[in-house]
């Protein structure tokens, strides 16, 4: 793991639960991974896989109640985030770890000016006075490609388009030059053309500022162009982790394989139905014993339904949670 420098983030056996009417939902059930400094890590999964909850857990943004981080360890640059007092957590948020969210329309405060929302970050964390913060904010806006930054500063979010708003969010997140940026589905709510622009922007800024990035998405296409490594999550667990290229070429998990097959291929034959992973996404409140994917897996055997699968190392850096990981890998 320690190839190019140290780990900026280390998640070990994270378990996050929610108390609901139907019982305790284990949204994140034993997730472990590491993020190297400067790396872009993708987390892929369907809705309900636990990918967003994982990132919120890192930021300690889980509402307690009804949620609860039930176990595990999260180490950020040597500091144990889960045992840190909230005051210190807040000192990290926005300064060393920043997050951008899915829907820029609702993620910015409609009642406050853009300037307020931008300047408050640096005034809080960097001790800027009003003028310094304002200058810095204008600089950041220009950096994210908003040319008429001065005018935009005193406007309100509803005056901007979706893409512009997301740029503002990025500017806000990167204001204090954080070491870690978590981007939770940053382009899902945007038009396709804007999507590309935003992703380009993130890549460019990341390169320029040396930020480590966790990019969460359900879209494999996004992952392909942006990430160094990918984690595939299902039913709150890490099902496969591998360098991006290898995951795409040689997946070692039936679920990953299913995901890859679901991506429509422009050369797909006409008339033949598009592939979907059979079955329904899992009811995380009532998971079956054994492998959570077993009910839908074409390769499932009795052992899959009764025994929880092992986390098999295919290569250093490539692991898969499957009884038949090696077999699937070879079949690729």
């Amino acid at each position: 793991m320690n190839e190019n420098g140290h780990n900026i983030l280390s998640v070990d056996g994270l378990r996050t639960q929610f108390a609901t009417e139907d019982g305790v939902v284990k949204a994140v059930d034993g997730v472990s991974f590491e993020l190297r400094k400067g790396e872009t890590l993708g987390i892929v999964g369907e809705s309900g896989s636990g990918k967003s909850v994982t990132s919120l857990s890192i930021m300690r943004l889980i509402q307690e109640p009804p949620g609860k981080i039930a176990g595990g360890k999260i180490t950020f640059d040597g500091t144990d985030l889960l045992s840190l007092p909230m005051n210190d957590v807040r000192k990290l948020r926005g300064k060393r770890i920043a997050m951008i969210f899915q829907d820029p329309m609702t993620s910015l405060n409609p009642f406050l000016k853009i300037s307020t929302q931008l300047t408050e970050v640096t005034r809080l964390h960097l001790g800027h006075n009003a003028q310094q913060a304002r200058d810095h904010a204008i600089k950041m806006l220009k950096l994210v490609g908003i040319s008429d930054a001065e005018e935009r500063m005193d406007g309100y979010p509803h005056e901007l388009s979706g893409g512009m708003r997301q740029r503002v969010m990025i500017a806000m997140a990167l204001s204090c030059d954080p070491e870690l940026l978590i981007a939770d589905e940053p382009t899902t709510a945007l038009d396709v053309t804007i999507q590309a622009q935003i992703l380009e922007l993130i890549k460019e800024l990341k390169d320029r500022m040396g930020t480590s990035v966790i990019l969460i998405t359900h879209d494999l296409g996004v992952v392909a162009g942006m990430t160094d490594r990918v984690i595939v999550m299902y039913a709150g667990k890490v099902f496969e982790i591998a360098p991006t290229a290898e995951l795409f070429k040689r997946p070692a998990n039936p679920y990953t394989r299913g995901l890859l097959r679901s991506v429509p291929d422009p050369e797909h034959e006409r008339g033949v139905p598009l592939y979907q992973i059979p079955g329904q996404p899992p009811d995380v409140a009532n998971l079956p014993p054994g492998c959570s994917f077993a009910p839908r897996c074409e390769r499932a055997e009795d052992i899959c339904r009764s025994e929880f699968p092992p986390f098999v190392e295919i290569d250093p850096g490539h692991h898969s949670l499957c009884h038949f990981a090696q077999e699937v890998f070879k079949e690729a």
């Binding site: 969210f101 993620s107 408050e120 809080l124």
Partner: peptide, 26 residues
């Protein structure tokens, strides 16, 4: 419950600031 409150918290603002500056007006 709004998303922008989550954003405010993610920026490291304390409960009081979140309440008074971000939540109150709405």
């Amino acid at each position: 419950r709004s998303d922008f409150i989550r954003t405010a918290r993610a920026k490291g603002l304390n409960d009081r600031t979140v309440l008074l500056r971000h939540a109150f007006r709405g």
